[in-house]
């Protein structure tokens, strides 16, 4: 086993291997470098954004000789999580850390919210033709709710609700209609702009 590790290190540095020189905790990149590497991983479903832009990347740390990267899924059933994990391992490996010493942990709490998408992330979404989620306001819904949403108000109290209006990411018009509750991915819904007539994706507030 140790021979195999040595072989890999040998391949990487291209020279004779001194077992004592194998990377240990002292040679693990520091947390800043680990974060910077993990933060380059693109989101598989919205590749212009990184997992840091989306707020999926929660933390990095060093546990003895292992680099630990913590991520959180957007939705319980998000199918992209496995791919994100593979991306993180690849990005951190590129720093010279053996893949066996990289651990990606998933946490559910606190639950991901679209409020964690950074300003940079929102700008990139809009530039890609995707309407960014609106900020969420904590509080009770105000005014009259359309029918069908009565139940939601009754049961959940809608502790958070989006502020402002959805606008077309192409022409900026506020005259938009929702075509479908779900769109190309679970985290988006489909809209059409009534001004420029273009359909567009909107990242649902969560």
């Amino acid at each position: 086993m140790s021979d195999r590790v040595s072989d890999r290190v040998s391949d990487r540095v291209g020279g004779p291997v001194d077992v004592a020189a194998l990377p240990d905790v002292a040679t693990l990149p520091d947390e800043e470098e680990l974060w910077a590497a993990a933060a380059t991983v693109p989101d598989p479903e919205m590749p212009p954004l990184t997992i840091a832009d989306l707020g999926i990347l929660r933390s990095v740390s060093r546990d003895a000789d292992t680099a630990v990267v913590t991520i959180t899924p957007t939705y319980s059933g998000c199918p992209a999580v496995d791919m994100i994990e593979a991306g993180v391992v690849e990005a951190v490996s590129a720093l010279g850390v053996d893949a066996g010493r990289i651990r990606v942990e998933r946490v559910l709490a606190p639950a991901w919210t679209t409020d964690w998408i950074t300003e940079d992330g929102r700008r990139k979404l809009a530039e890609s033709g995707i309407s960014p989620p609106r900020p969420l306001l904590i509080g009770e819904p105000a005014g009259e709710m359309p029918k069908g949403e009565v139940a939601v108000a009754l049961t959940a109290g809608l502790p958070r609700r989006p502020m402002g209006d959805i606008t077309c990411p192409r022409c900026g018009s506020g005259s938009v209609v929702e075509l479908s509750h779900f769109s190309s991915t679970a985290c988006k819904s489909l809209y059409r702009c009534e001004s420029c007539r273009e359909p567009f994706d909107h990242v649902k507030e969560l």
């Binding site: 939705y75 319980s76 559910l108 709490a109 606190p110 639950a111 991901w112």
Partner: peptide, 10 residues
């Protein structure tokens, strides 16, 4: 509690 906090939004 953590699983539920995620699931309730969905």
């Amino acid at each position: 509690a953590a699983i539920a906090a995620k699931a309730v939004k969905e």
